[in-house]
């Protein structure tokens, strides 16, 4: 790890000022992603601004929504009574990620900003357009078992690894960010981006902006929500495919459906067409199977991840069955 300058900020303003005049400065929150990447020289900021003392840890009910501070810990959010009661989908997704120790360190903002786990991104001896623009994509023709099947480009086929973000995109969350010119609000679905020909950009946050909080509008999805994650071992592994499913039901009839998929794209992948196909239908495995087929339209596999084309729809059906109480 290279040497760097270290600064501790106590307010949002000080934190944002800490980034000014320094293109190689980064915030550090839990450190669980950044310290890992710095040890491997994948990232080498020359200055770290420690934001852990900025008071942004609150989880609170506001008018018609719940607000979660960017520095709330993943474990704190997962275990919070308000989240357990109103957004169990988010609790489940958080607890499906990483380990208890990591969730005690990882923050909401850091989780959103975590980088891909693509092995070509991690290995500085190999080409990667995300790490080193223009060097090529090693995964395209390489070992691409963990990689994307939706929204890929010739430049990059990496996936965003977060579980938390899959639940948040399904719950129609918004992200509040602050910069030198004040605050702005970004719909969660627009926060992360597709690789296109700028895979070095994971999301739309500017270099001098900070995530302040995430807001989830109240909904009626809490009784029929399920996060289903398939991985190489039972726990403590990244998703091969995961699905967040939540339904608002009128007896056996679906009024509103939310579906999002993880492990399949460069961003949390919302399945809007499939959601629309479910509205007004009576719950059944057949209905779910049809929705899953719609969801998978446009998927494109690479040499080693073709299994995701089969696994994907099965995980969608299982998540929906669990959400609807059919299992």
């Amino acid at each position: 790890m290279i040497q760097f300058q270290y600064e501790r900020a106590a307010t949002t303003k000080a934190a944002i000022n800490g980034l000014a005049n320094s293109t190689h400065a980064k915030f550090i929150a839990g450190g669980t992603n950044l310290v890992d990447l710095m040890k491997r020289n994948v990232m080498a900021p020359t200055k770290l601004v420690d934001i852990n003392r900025v008071p942004l840890k609150d989880i609170q009910q506001l008018n018609g929504k719940i607000s979660i501070g960017a520095l709330a810990l993943n474990s704190q959010v997962a275990d919070h009574p308000l989240i357990l009661e109103k957004h169990p989908l988010l609790s489940q997704a958080l607890n499906a990620g990483a380990s208890a120790q990591i969730r005690n360190m990882a923050t909401v903002g850091g989780n959103m900003m975590q980088r891909t786990r693509c092995p070509y991104f991690y290995d500085t001896a190999l080409p990667c357009n995300k790490r080193e623009p223009g060097s090529g994509c090693g995964a395209l023709e390489g070992v691409n078992r963990m990689h994307a099947i939706f929204g890929t480009s010739e430049q990059c086929i990496a996936v965003h690894p977060s579980d938390m973000c899959i639940a948040l995109v399904a719950l129609d969350a918004s992200v509040i960010v602050a910069g030198p010119k004040g605050e702005r609000r970004i719909p969660f679905e627009e926060f992360h981006r597709l690789p296109g020909n700028q895979p070095e950009k994971d999301n739309v946050l500017q270099n001098n902006e900070m995530i302040i909080s995430v807001e989830i509008p109240d909904n009626e999805l809490s009784k029929n929500a399920h996060y289903f994650k398939v991985r190489d071992r039972a726990s403590y592994a990244f998703a091969l495919v995961s699905v967040a499913a939540a339904l608002t039901m009128d007896g056996k009839v679906i009024r509103d459906a939310r579906l999002a998929m993880g492990g399949v794209a460069h961003k949390p992948w919302r399945l809007r067409e499939a959601e629309r196909s479910l509205a007004g239908k009576t719950v059944s495995e057949e209905t779910f199977r049809q929705a899953a087929e719609i969801a998978m339209q446009g998927a494109k596999a690479f040499k080693y991840n073709a299994f995701k084309l089969k696994l994907g729809p099965n995980v969608i059906v299982e998540a929906l069955k669990n959400a609807a109480g059919l299992v």
Partner: peptide, 16 residues
């Protein structure tokens, strides 16, 4: 002072 309320703890190559 709030604008500047970052405690500058150390510079590269220094211990703190």
């Amino acid at each position: 002072a709030e604008f500047n309320l970052g405690e500058k703890m150390s510079t590269a190559f220094e211990t703190t």
